[in-house]
Amino acid sequence: MQSISDTIKRLRKLRSAHSSAPMFEDRLTDLGPFGSNPGALKAKIHIPNGLMPRAPLVVVLHGCTQTASGYDHGSGWSRLADDYGFVVLFPQQTPSNNANTCFNWFLPGDIRRNQGEAFSIRQMIETVTSTYDIDRSRIFITGLSAGGAMANVMLATHPELFAGGAIIAGLPYGIATTVPEAFDRMRGQGLPGAGGLQTLLLSASKHDGPWPAISVWQGTKDHTVVPANAFAVIEQWRGVHEVEFPPVTQRIDHHQRIVWRGADGREALVLYQLGGMGHGTPIDATSGYGKAGPYMLDVGISSTQHIARSWGLIASFEKRVNLDPGTLREPSANTFQSPYSSEQGTGIQPTIEKALRAAGLMK
């Protein structure tokens, strides 16, 4: 079992490696003032040349030890925006808020509606939306790790803002209030049961629908934010989307994609299980969008492209979905089992492992 000190040492080591990496072209510019900014964040933005009115907006949140520009370089979001004509907003954490530049996804004062960092991000979005004539029905958010957890904070506290969200190696909303609790939850310890997770989401705002579509991206070998959190995020949103098992399982670029559809037939929840991947954002270095580096893992699938396609921002691309007809099926109840089939507190790891074995991702 990894201790908190071990995790902190690993984060610092990765930050040091990242800071000594070669310089790259910074494609982002400062947003400028964006309201009262109670969370004391910074913001960067990328505006494509010749931006058309009513363009979509994508909000991208970096992970711990990263910067907005570094994450853009690794993920390729600004280059995709140039090719397809949408705006990208990058909130930027500061060392004065968090020594490892993690968004404070677990601090009560930063994750409530109209408070702290969450409200700062809300103010950034409003500034960009008003300044650049953004289509308010096409605002999306994604993030990695602490940025993924903060993306989930925004989706939970301001669901009316977003048409969709993509959480990469992130965590459920509202499950921790202190640093020790945050590290426990990252390791899968003390996660609430289904009812508790869904209550936390419903308590975050007074919204009663419609709800943003959610995709969750998780490496099966992630030892920093363990796969239990991906299942928990899906379960947290499954209640409001009123999806039912069984989902549909597909193979996509040699990884597994599990889809839950809503009553209207749309993809309400999607879980990407990335076989053998550790902690980071999945990229395809051959796609032209993104570069491998710390937390940017070349596993042959471009999460940036797939996320943008699912939001209707780009058309189909060559490596869009490599389906094996034998794997596209309605799985039986034994193929995928929710680790949250009944109310529970701690001790869910055996059920998580059972679900992964049933999906063919563990032996």
Rank of each mutant, 00 (worst) to 15 (best):
L200Y: 06
G193F: 11
R251D: 12
A204V: 02
R122A: 13
I111W: 01
P172Q: 02
F162S: 07
I141K: 04
H158V: 08
S145V: 01
S215H: 03
R187H: 08
F140D: 05
P210F: 02
F183T: 12
R238V: 02
V216E: 00
A176C: 13
F183G: 02
I139P: 04
A194N: 14
F245N: 15
P246V: 05
A228P: 01
P246S: 12
M186K: 11
V248M: 09
P212I: 01
G147H: 01
K206Y: 07
E117P: 07
Q123V: 02
I125L: 11
A163P: 06
T142V: 00
A169G: 05
W237Y: 12
A232C: 09
H207S: 10
H223G: 10
P247W: 10
D133V: 04
G193A: 11
Q115G: 04
I134T: 06
P180K: 10
V243F: 12
R251W: 09
G143Q: 09
T129I: 01
M124R: 01
E160H: 14
Y132H: 14
S203C: 08
E181F: 08
A182Q: 07
I214M: 03
E117S: 08
G188M: 06
A146G: 13
V179C: 03
Q250W: 05
G164R: 09
I141P: 03
E244M: 12
Q123W: 07
L200S: 09
Q250A: 05
T224K: 07
S215N: 10
S215T: 13
Q115C: 10
H241S: 02
V225E: 13
I134Y: 07
I111H: 00
T131L: 10
K221Y: 10
A176R: 09
T157V: 15
I121D: 00
K206S: 14
A230V: 12
A230N: 05
G165K: 01
